[in-house]
């Protein structure tokens, strides 16, 4: 039996204590609460694509679960955009900006790709838990 392999009672108690401490720490560190309360106002992002690349220096779109999100896209040539996971596809034409609007119901990290001759990632959407 595995029990006979266990160390004597003192060590067992110590290990259990270490386990409890670990669980407590994870709970404390893990459960931070968001600083801002949920707002009715959607989170807006204005992004511009120049030759299949994003201009500006935003690398990641970060929102929280449950947020309403609006991403406004404009481009200097016709670009097909695909937000994976949420599975939203948008075609942005020159001079005709498009908006992706959705509620961030699922957490995770989702690539937004241009689907042309190559699929390449423009930016990632990160939805964090509340």
């Amino acid at each position: 039996m595995v029990v006979t392999l266990m160390p004597n009672g003192r060590i067992l108690r110590l290990i259990s204590a270490a386990w409890l401490a670990l669980v407590w720490l994870v709970v404390v560190f893990g459960n931070w609460s968001p600083a801002d309360a949920q707002t009715e106002e959607p989170k807006r992002f204005d992004l511009r694509i120049e030759n299949d690349r994003l201009s500006g220096d935003l690398k990641v779109i970060r929102v929280r679960r449950g947020d309403a999100v609006e991403i406004n896209w404009s481009a200097n040539r016709r670009t097909v955009l695909h937000l994976h996971g949420y599975d939203i596809e948008t075609v942005v034409e020159v001079g005709r900006p498009q908006t992706m609007s959705f509620t961030a119901r699922a957490t995770g990290r989702f690539p937004i790709e241009t689907h042309g001759r190559y699929h390449s990632v423009l930016i990632y959407l990160e939805v964090y838990p509340r």
Binding site: F29, G85, D87, G108, R109, P111, Y124, E126
Partner: peptide, 20 residues
């Protein structure tokens, strides 16, 4: 095949795991 990736492990979780 990838539709969704995991979010990176936050620093707190990383430190607790490493420390433990």
């Amino acid at each position: 095949l990838a539709q969704r990736y995991d979010l990176p492990l936050p620093l707190g979780f990383f430190l607790v795991g490493a420390g433990a």
